[in-house]
């Protein structure tokens, strides 16, 4: 915690927060992945409550440390599947297990990047603050986060954003913003990254930085990425195909990055 001498309002609010108990946003689970990262059983869901079924009785599992691709034609329900796994859309039936927790208790482990992030336009926020929001996962109600600076710096550096940390978010390019959101997921300590076509509309340099992070550094997190690029598939350990409302798994993965044909 940085102990800079501060004005009386900020000292007052610190004293106020120090007195109050902290309530976690969600019941928390201990971190660490052993075995299966995502297990879906007989999952049925719709994109919208009054819309058609996106997929029916889908069952699959993704081992820890696996890089999995999610493919399928436009409108086949890839985004809905990712949203259900993230706990943002309710499944009609079936279950999702994150590790051995439900999406609700396991939510801190998940980071989800939508195709087009729905951020409030022109919100007065610097990139640094956006990345810092990842630390909220480790805090709760009635707590101000005065720490986490080091993790934020590190994540910004990893995504090649150190120089941009004071830039207002709305002045960033699409690629810079996408990298910022991944930096936030790093700060959050997410073990499972659900990415919805992250390369759509990215320039080459952003794409390379994200690739380097996802595919060549360590094996301590699990990736499920919706993608349209057939040339891209060779890098993945496992491929889930969503077609005609069903999910089929191609290519096995033993969880350590080596795949069997």
């Amino acid at each position: 915690m940085s102990a800079t001498p501060s004005s009386w309002p900020s000292r007052l609010s610190r004293a106020m927060f120090a007195l109050l108990p902290t309530l976690p946003y969600a019941p928390s689970e201990k971190a660490g992945c052993g075995g299966i990262a995502i297990r879906a059983t007989n999952l049925t869901a719709r994109a919208r409550a009054d819309g058609p079924v996106a997929f029916q009785d889908a069952s699959f599992e993704i081992p820890c440390g696996c890089r999995a691709a999610l493919i399928g034609p436009n409108g086949s329900g890839k985004s809905t599947l990712l949203r259900v796994l993230a706990g943002l859309t309710r499944a009609e039936s079936g279950t999702v297990l994150i590790g051995d927790a439900t999406p609700r208790t396991g939510r801190r482990r998940i980071a989800y990047l939508s195709q087009r992030p729905h951020l409030t336009a022109y919100f007065p926020l610097r990139l640094r603050r956006l990345v810092q929001m990842g630390t909220y996962a480790h805090h709760g109600w009635l707590e101000e986060c005065f720490h986490g600076d080091q993790a934020v710096d590190l994540a910004l550096e990893r995504m090649g954003l150190s120089e941009l940390s004071d830039r207002p978010v709305h002045t960033l390019s699409g690629g810079q913003l996408q990298r910022g959101l991944i930096a936030r997921a790093i700060v959050q300590g997410a073990e499972i990254l659900l990415l919805d076509e992250p390369y759509a509309a990215l320039d080459q340099s952003s794409r390379e930085i994200i690739d380097r992070f996802l595919f060549s550094q360590g094996q301590h997190f699990t990736v499920l990425m919706a993608t349209h690029d057939p040339a891209d598939l060779a890098r993945f350990d496992r491929i889930l195909e969503l077609r005609d409302h069903a999910v089929t798994t191609r290519r096995a993965c033993d969880g350590h990055g080596h795949h069997h044909a």
Binding site: A26, F123, M133, W141
Partner: peptide, 23 residues
């Protein structure tokens, strides 16, 4: 003041707030 970080988060990125459970 007490809800500053939650209000800011929910106003800026509602989806992420929901993901974290910040209501």
């Amino acid at each position: 003041r007490l809800l500053h970080k939650e209000l800011e988060l929910a106003s800026f990125d509602e989806e992420y707030a929901q993901l974290l459970g910040a209501r």
